[in-house]
């Protein structure tokens, strides 16, 4: 009985497996086709920015769109880097300063504050943390006008001070994120240090901070990204074009030279480029960071 059955079942099994494999392959192909199509849609603006950066204005608005610039204007980069109204290196320096100062302030203040919320008991702590979360819902513009008036009264408008000082006092979102990390560290570690007579600040600085280093890098990377993107703050507070960060410099450049599309695209490329470089080195932190922001919501 079994001798008769085996070959038939075997054959059917082979057939079915072959069919399954074919189905699997077709499925994989369909998925990749879809994902590649979507990828192309996401990448076209990059492609258009880069190729337009290598054209001249006539090529950009040529009757037949040029998918590849002919001739290639590499000289655009040399021109754009020191174009009147777009002093690239100066703007780059301003952006680096702005992002650097904000990031240092954010990382240290948020780490300390998050540690306080996560590991130390004090009266009113949970209420205060609840308030902290609630502030995430306040549209920034609601606090912006009186803050502006306050800084104007102290004569600090026109400088980076109003953009940097508040960041040394914490940020609700990053506090929330880092608190989760500090909560995940076993209590015995700090208890042992306490028994050994270590002060709370030393426990924080020497034991806790090194343990949450990956999370601190995530915060730093996000802080750099969002400061680099910041447009509204610098637009309101800064006056001297030589002090602009890249985003605002690019905006000013476009407003003044609305017809110079090729150079505007070159300038855009130069504005994006540093971030792409940072991203390439910190990619896994970016991806992990985005994942974290959603999960604990």
């Amino acid at each position: 009985m079994s001798q008769v059955m085996v070959p038939r079942t075997g054959q059917r099994l082979i057939q079915r497996r072959f069919g399954q494999q074919l189905q699997h392959l077709a499925g994989q192909l369909a998925k990749h086709a879809l994902l590649i199509a979507v990828s192309i849609v996401f990448l076209v603006p990059f492609y258009w920015m880069l190729t337009s950066a290598l054209k001249d204005n006539n090529q950009i608005f040529a009757f037949e769109p040029q998918w590849w610039p002919n001739p290639v204007h590499w000289d655009n980069f040399a021109t754009a880097i020191d174009f009147p109204g777009f002093p690239y290196l100066r703007l780059l320096g301003n952006s680096v300063f702005y992002a650097g100062a904000v990031t240092i302030g954010t990382v240290f203040s948020c780490a300390a504050i998050a540690y306080g919320f996560a590991r130390l008991r004090f009266p009113g702590r949970d209420l205060l943390f609840g308030i902290t979360l609630a502030t995430l819902m306040i549209p920034p513009i609601v606090t912006f006008i009186p803050t502006y008036i306050l800084f104007a009264a102290t004569g600090l408008t026109g400088s980076y001070a109003p953009l940097i000082i508040p960041r040394f006092l914490g940020d609700a979102f990053y506090i929330f994120m880092l608190r989760q990390f500090f909560k995940g560290i076993p209590a015995d570690l700090s208890d042992a240090a306490r028994i050994d007579g270590a002060g709370e600040f030393r426990i924080f600085w020497e034991i806790m901070l090194p343990l949450v280093r990956p999370a601190l890098i995530v915060v730093a990377v996000f802080s750099i990204l969002y400061t680099w993107h910041d447009f509204f703050g610098p637009l309101i507070y800064l006056q001297d074009p030589m002090s602009y960060p890249l985003s605002l410099g690019l905006y000013a450049f476009r407003s003044q030279r609305a017809m110079e599309w090729a150079l505007i695209m070159t300038a855009s490329t130069l504005t994006v480029l540093p971030l792409i470089l940072v991203f390439l080195f910190t990619q896994r932190y970016f991806i992990r960071g985005v994942a974290m922001t959603g999960l604990k919501g």
Binding site: S109, A112, I113, Y115, G116, F117, L120, R121, F122, P123, R125, L128, I131, T132, T135, I138, V142, T143, F144, I145, P146, T147, I149, L150, P166, F168, L169, G170, I175, G199, E200, F201, F204
Partner: peptide, 30 residues
Amino acid sequence: LNREARAGLLFVLPWLIFLVVFTTYPVLGT
């Protein structure tokens, strides 16, 4: 307050200042 509570308040002090100066005051101000 005990030692832990004092340390805790000290750690969140910058944020307390932020909540007063850059949140509460401006919201009431607006």
